[in-house]
Design a protein around this nucleic acid. Sequence first.
DNA 1: TGAAATGTTGGGGCG
DNA 2: ACGCCCCAACATTTC
Length: 480
Amino acid sequence: MSQKPIIVWFRQELRLSDHPALVAAAQTGAPVICLYIHDDVTAQSWAQGGASRWWLHHSLKALAQSIAQKGGELTLRQGETVQALEAVIAQTGASAVYFTRGHNPWSAALETRVKTLCEKTGVDCRRFGGFLLFEPEDIRNGSGEPYKVYTPFSRFCFAAPAPRFPKPAPDSLKGVKLKSDKLESWSLLPTKPDWSKGFTMWQPGETGAQQRLADFLDDRLAIYGEARNFPNVEATSGLSAHLHSGDISPNQIWHAAKAAIAKAQGKHDKSGETFLKEVLWREFSYHLLHHWPHLPDRPFKPEYADFPWASDPKGLQAWQHGLTGYPIVDAGMRELWQTGIMHNRVRMITASFLIKDLLVPWQEGERWFWDTLVDADIGANAASWQWVAGCGADAAPYFRIFNPVLQGEKFDADGDYVRRFVPELARLPKTFIHKPWEAPALVLKEAGVTLGKTYPNRIIDHHFARDRALAGLKQLKATA
DNA sequence: TGAAATGTTGGGGCG
DNA sequence: ACGCCCCAACATTTC
């Protein structure tokens, strides 16, 4: 007699390997309904941004293909999640819904409603891990509280029993043919204009993720510790967007990196530890988000709500378009627009500039990154913007203000990162590449640069801006 | 995962 | 030879 099918509700784990819910469903021997629901309702204002929709489209396409190769079928539905699930249960007589736990602020309430639906319809409901190495409530400090500081958090993680070892993909998926949306009908890709033309280095999906991980461990892990801060050196893993969509699991990255470190017999210990620590920053972000779900919207340190922000729509626009007149800032913002990614060092520099030089509220920058980053991730994005703003848990102190000239000279000493993304400055010698306003007229002329015409004048003087920001902090302290 | 201001030290030029 | 000054280099404090 034929078994009733099990629904595997795919969310941010668009892969077949190391997918505990899928493995469990396949093991039962029942037919598996692989279901993805495109729900723009539940997340409300944090519905996915443009660049991550582009990624999602390609990742889903890859997922559908690999499911088909296993003999299954990916079913696509659009709409509010519980309603969509209810419809699929009714249409198929499914016996169970298996899914991976989500960690976005709205996930807990949504999962409760899914559970209620299942109880109501007499369907088995099972929730699995897979998005994080450690469940947020499993990590507590000595007094039973969640961690607010990264270093002890990471120490706890390193000392904890090893996270789950990755599971292989099911050998085959007995599918169920169901009515499915056409992926194209969701219009996840940009049309007019198509700003995704520069996204050529990405291969969303499980295969691309595994390839990138292997390349990183082979070629870049060795130099990661030293070189990861230099935006023009290819030294980072580039896995963030794959992690966001779940093309790969953190467990796959963690254990593969551990194995690579062990294989290098001490040669990559430092680099390796630095890399693992970065993976744990992601965990820390979600730990904070879990315990403080307002993190994307409101300052962790509530007194920062009263900070004397400026209203500067022109400044915000110049920042968004990479036209601030500070080459390292503009290079970063244009890298973001062209490629959907920005090097982490430059994220800190550009974020500091928006918040501290322009006094634009950090939420504005968070929103822009949300829309333009292919790795836009609610936990990391919120925690990181609050870190720079100084209002987060374990944040940089407010007075830590990045000087865009010094940062440029330190981390892009020869200026090649600037030249790559700000071509109108390409012929400036490195002495002036990070401060063209100091270049003698003749040097500018020979480089074909006319400030205010071919490249903007600085929209603000950094030294003035720094003093202004510090005065704002003083005011905040006085009223606190 | 900062930068500027301030303090300290020591070498060298010079009367 | 000596004291004095200058200043670079480094260290510490402060924002």
